[in-house]
Design a protein around this nucleic acid. Structure first.
Lengths: 152, 152
DNA sequence: TAATGTTGTTATGAGTCATAACATTCCTAT
DNA sequence: ATAGGAATGTTATGACTCATAACAACATTA
């Protein structure tokens, strides 16, 4: 009964903005707001959020190639080229041949320092992000999100 | 105790992919996978997801101007121009002067038909989306997402 | 060894987004 | 009522992400 009333209220409240009832729309808006804020924070150390994720994965994996990295991040091989080129030009990572055609990605010392700075920003950002979610929903968010894309 | 074991497992599982522990990353991936799929489905009626949201809001609001619409969708005034121009060129909406500088946006009959087709696709898409979320998390997703960006 | 698949790369175009600038029109505070 | 400030629609421009096609060099397998 209470639920029914709440539901009717939400319909009335959303009459002029039907998008608010669509999880897909909420998801898109939440993500783009989140990305905008994270990007702003990472700009302080001249890093883009995509680049931060590259540093994280390169650091965590040995003999990671550009292709494998792209597969993990769901970024096309072709699009890895300018991404990695920028990081290489900034002296954050370098490549070492694994065989005739593959290269392992490795962090330079500068890259490791940058990663540390990035992790500080990201950790504090994630904390702020979760803090915005009402406590009763908090434990469900991560699992629900991952269900939406992993092996989805 | 069981929780602690589950937590340790998740750390081990994510050692090579630390990104999976970051809600922000999960959010980004979920959103981009969702957008890709919705876009693919809307392509069947030659509509982009942004355009669908415009049709929905124009239909639901009287005397909606381009600026007001942009504010609702969090799209810059400047970026509304090409967006609306495409919809106008497709004969889906038209403008009527409200005063010397503002125009009300209105759907044509073609636009209303297109909206109906879009809603069918979107409704079924949203259903599929929610179906992917384990039942115990489902009631929390929408509220958690909205908390992340609304008056956030 | 021949066929097939993978890697790294170049090139290109679409979609989204941000910013700056401008003229016209409006609102408001004096 | 009017002068100053705000809002609207618009053009222009550049950044970032993403998708696709094509290619040569190399690896893998059947």
């Amino acid at each position: 009964m209470l639920l029914a009333i709440a539901f009717l209220r939400s319909i009335l409240r959303n009459m002029k903005d039907p998008l608010l009832s669509l999880p897909g729309y909420s998801l898109r808006r939440a993500a783009s707001a989140m990305i905008a804020e994270l990007s702003a924070r990472l700009a302080a150390i001249d890093l883009r959020h995509t680049e931060a994720s590259v540093l994280i994965l390169v650091n965590a994996n040995n003999d990671l190639t550009a292709s494998a990295l792209g597969r993990k991040l769901d970024i096309q091989r072709a699009n890895m080229v300018p991404l990695l080129a920028r990081l290489e030009a900034a002296g954050l990572l370098y490549k070492e041949p694994l065989d005739g055609k593959s290269h392992a990605l490795l962090l330079t010392d500068t890259g490791k320092a940058k990663l540390k700075a990035a992790m500080a920003i990201i950790t504090s950002f994630e904390g702020d992000l979760i803090a915005r979610v009402p406590e009763q929903h908090r434990p469900h968010l991560q699992a629900a999100l991952n269900a939406l894309w992993q092996n989805g």
